[in-house]
Design a protein around this nucleic acid. Structure first.
Lengths: 222, 222
DNA sequence: GTATAGTAACTGACGAGTCAGTTACTTGTG
DNA sequence: CACAAGTAACTGACTCGTCAGTTACTATAC
């Protein structure tokens, strides 16, 4: 596969430090994303960059450091996209829709990064960066949920506190469903994206709407 | 730590094959659940069972086989619980509630098994059993969603097909939110269980309710 | 006394990390 | 322009710890 990647015409080997570093990071993203941390060897990364393992070690002093660097880039990239999209929207509904769209976009045009994310986000041993991302995502979510209500002066502090509490509980629900939706869609390419995306938006939006109305279905009593 | 576990009085205790196997499986569950597949060594499992590694190999011929056996048990256990709880309920709402309750129960009284589950369910390389579980869970979910409608003779086959399609899309959303909710709760022990549980039930129930009413909020057009 | 439960000590492979050396590119100097 | 001296990019071939899996031997129950 990819006998000649096109840009390297056989001989173009030596590269300035910074450029090589970029390339190595890209290669590592691909390998870690496709194979996962443990099944990826430094050899694999080096080979993917058509370079020796020793050189790789001149840029990153250890495997976990390399992984951390890759994770950090991924996290930064996704966070930037999310912030840009969500902050651009006026109300919460549009914010939710934007968020879902960003995730579907990201998974579509950065499949390796997406894979890296979902594969390691629940592994405490590798990648605290990814944990951070999850929490930051949660924060962004909660803020989005509470945007309107925090600005509302008629709400008593107590009422607001209740809302905060409920928002925290809603976050993992929405968050989990969104990630799961995207992952499911990736595994079912026959399903049109708009369909899956629209369903996710509806679903999550409904959850947010709940917070507003505060109604309860009361299923607890069997 | 645990110098003497109490039941074993220092000396070499012989055990019948089947019993030892059970014990080894329990030990492996603990180790795999807490450390994860890759950070668990066969030594760890053997030590946890106060037994030599060689003996462990007389029961399970390879590490992945051991892991597969443990996974299979976990899957069987959880599936049984879910089936029992869901099938006992009459309507879909109660079914959802029961499902959520089962998951919270399971996470509470089988923490290692729960951990094993969430840590490896998205790793294709280890444990196809866990993948299976996920899909089976999805099936159960879809069936639950469609129980009523399938029995309804007034629905045209076409209308039913639409429902089936929508149900498939809803499954990952509900599924993801439920798992995420439980995991979140485990990481936030200060939150009372009933609160988190009730929120999850409401949230998922609302999603199911959507299927019934078929209304759409139409967020797609920005 | 022989089956089976058990172990301590061993092996071999794999993979992270290193090092001594080589190759290409840059920069004075005549 | 040539041609050395200097330096940064790069490599092949190693070390060395770790860990899955084995072997050869011992203890115990019936």
């Amino acid at each position: 596969m990819a006998g000649t990647t096109g840009d390297d015409a056989g001989v173009r080997r030596r590269m300035p430090h910074a450029l090589r570093r970029e390339q190595l990071l890209r290669a590592a993203l691909g390998e870690f994303g496709r194979r996962g941390y443990h099944e990826t060897q430094m050899e694999h990364v080096a080979a993917a960059a058509r370079v020796s393992k020793a050189l790789l070690y001149q840029h990153f002093s250890a495997k976990d450091e390399l992984f951390a660097a890759v994770s950090a880039e991924v996290v930064a990239g996704l966070t930037a996209r999310l912030n840009a999209a969500v902050l651009a929207e006026q109300d919460s509904a549009a914010g939710i829709a934007a968020m879902v769209r960003v995730l579907y976009d990201y998974a579509t045009d950065e499949p390796d990064a997406w894979n890296l994310l979902v594969r390691h986000i629940d592994k405490p041993e590798v990648g605290p960066e990814l944990r951070e991302l999850r929490d930051r995502l949660g924060e962004a979510f909660a803020a989005l949920l509470l945007r309107r209500r925090r600005a509302d002066p008629t709400l008593s502090p107590a009422a607001l506190a209740v809302n905060e509490r409920r928002a925290r509980l809603l976050v993992p629900l929405m968050y989990g469903s969104m990630l799961s939706s995207v992952s499911w869609w990736l595994e079912h390419p026959d399903t049109p994206r708009e369909e899956a995306e629209a369903m996710a938006m509806d679903f999550v939006w409904l959850g947010l709407d709940r917070l507003r109305s505060g109604e309860r279905t009361d299923l607890r009593a069997r």
